[in-house]
């Protein structure tokens, strides 16, 4: 009871716990805990044999946080910026620091635009996006779709209906854009 100074009595003794649980108390001494103390100055421990790493070549102008004074020596060099999403993302990096909500909200906007752009582009390839196989919904078969969900009272049942909307949304938008474009072409051809 917190209203008095007494410590609630433990339910199980250390001996009981040791008997029941493999390794109980093996790391009781903080000295055995690898994350303690948090900071330990030991540059020799990492395997690095350089004081500053060689610089990876910058094959394309690499966007970076304005909180970085210079481009770090090593970086991921995948999926370069392109299209409208690239313009949005580049602006988010060039203009706003990580401290600014605008930085992150623009990046999220860039993500949504990227998804739509990429869907549209995919329709011009031999492997267009399609929501059935890409959403993995076929895994429902054979993996207890009903039983899994009705086992107990799962909290996420309340919002599962949103997921298909998110999956189909950009696809419907892209489809709609195609229809509108086709209509425009047809109208112009007739006009």
């Amino acid at each position: 009871m917190p209203y008095t100074a007494d410590q609630p009595r433990p339910r199980e003794s250390a001996d009981d716990l040791r008997a029941r649980i493999p390794g109980w108390g093996a790391d009781l001494d903080p000295a055995d805990r690898p994350a303690v103390p948090r900071e330990r100055f030991d540059p020799g421990a990492t395997g690095a044999h350089w004081t500053f790493p060689d610089r990876q070549p910058e094959t394309q102008p690499r966007e970076r946080s304005i909180e970085h004074e210079e481009l770090p020596p090593v970086f991921g060099d995948t999926v370069h910026l392109k299209g409208l999403s690239g313009v949005i993302r580049r602006h988010a990096y060039a203009r706003y620091s990580e401290a600014r909500a605008a930085h992150w909200l623009l990046l999220i906007l860039g993500d949504r635009v990227d998804a739509i752009e990429s869907h549209l582009v995919s329709f011009a390839t031999t492997r267009p996006d399609e929501p059935i196989t890409q959403s993995g919904v076929l895994a429902e078969l054979g993996h207890r779709p009903v039983g899994s969900r009705l086992d107990g009272r799962r909290a996420d049942l309340k919002h599962m209906w949103i997921d298909p909307v998110i999956v189909a949304g950009p696809w419907l938008l892209a489809g709609g854009a195609v229809v509108l474009a086709a209509r425009a072409v047809v109208t112009r051809a007739r006009g």
């Binding site: 990492t46 946080s65 909180e67 481009l71 770090p72 090593v74 970086f75």
Partner: peptide, 16 residues
């Protein structure tokens, strides 16, 4: 150098 490997400053241009 201080053991904060997950907080490395030399590998991520996009965020500090």
């Amino acid at each position: 150098a201080r053991g904060l490997y997950s907080n490395c400053h030399n590998v991520n241009p996009n965020a500090t």
